[in-house]
Computed example of a mutant assay.
Amino acid sequence: MKHVLDRPIWSALATRHQAFAEGDGLARRYRPSVVPFAATATDDDESQRALGRLLPPLESSILVQTDPIVLPAEVSAVSTATLVQMTAERPMQAVSDERVQPLTPDDAAEMLALASLTKPGPFTLEALSLGEFWGVKIGGRLAAMAGERMKQPGYAELSGVCTHPDFRGGGLARLLSLFVASRIMARGEVPYLHAYDSNALAIGLYESIGFRLRTTLNMAVVRRAG
């Protein structure tokens, strides 16, 4: 039996993030202005045809799943990678630090600039609509942030963890990861995250705060021909 996180994008768009979905019961994607993720319900031919119809020509989308990624003829992979998916099943102690503050739409432009600089993963000005984001500001500048992205029944994804190069080495990524993960747990949900399997530094950080490997996933950045 498939786990709800084996096709995390599909599971989110079919449940808790239906309001952000475009598509049908075979293929769906987030509104591109929110995040460039797409998925199919299965890998059968009908779902692949639906994906081909859903993706606009020349626009890039990201697919993530445990199964090998199958694409319709008109859609090709621009790049591929292997991700680790980690979950934190054991209780975490709530984190309290007066430096951590909620980020709001007023911070969106600075959040986008930080994400563009540090590249923690796809990020847009509308990312705040997916869940809470928290940050630490130093000298009036956004030094680090972390937040939530995809959500499935009983699960919420820790995402957007990044620190400005000027402020690295101070434990801010660890602090914010713990803070967001503990808030997810306080709601009775399991926090999970994704990282490139080659990013040993990030994986080591997440292991140190209680995350454990659940599985590996295939990721592809895809584009439909014009």
Rank of each mutant, 00 (worst) to 15 (best):
F37P: 06
E89P: 00
L71Y: 03
T124V: 09
M145Q: 15
M111H: 11
M145W: 07
Y196N: 10
M1C: 11
L117Q: 11
L26R: 12
L5T: 03
A21L: 11
A19F: 02
V84N: 00
A39L: 07
I209P: 02
I203L: 06
W134T: 05
Y206W: 15
A173P: 01
P57T: 14
V161L: 02
V35R: 12
G139P: 07
G188S: 10
T87S: 09
G52Y: 13
A77L: 04
F133W: 10
V35L: 14
G147I: 06
A144W: 00
A109E: 14
G171F: 06
L26C: 04
L5M: 05
T82A: 11
K151M: 05
E22I: 15
A81Q: 05
T40A: 08
G169N: 11
P165N: 07
A81C: 04
Q85E: 11
E148W: 01
G154P: 04
G210A: 09
L71G: 05
L13I: 11
I203M: 10
S159F: 00
E74G: 13
G140L: 09
S159W: 00
F167T: 12
P122V: 07
R28E: 08
L178F: 00
P191R: 04
Q85G: 00
S11Q: 12
S33E: 15
I9N: 09
G121S: 10
N218W: 05
L5Q: 02
L51T: 11
V35W: 04
A81W: 09
H194T: 02
L178S: 13
M111W: 09
L201W: 10
Y196S: 08
T82P: 00
L58G: 02
L201C: 02
S47Y: 06
Q65M: 06
L13V: 11
E157L: 00
A88G: 06
L178G: 07
M150F: 07
M111K: 04
Q85T: 01
G135H: 01
W10N: 08
L125Q: 13
F133C: 02
I62Q: 08
A200V: 11
Y206D: 07
P68C: 10
P153S: 08
S182G: 07
T124H: 05
E110V: 15
G169I: 14
A73W: 06
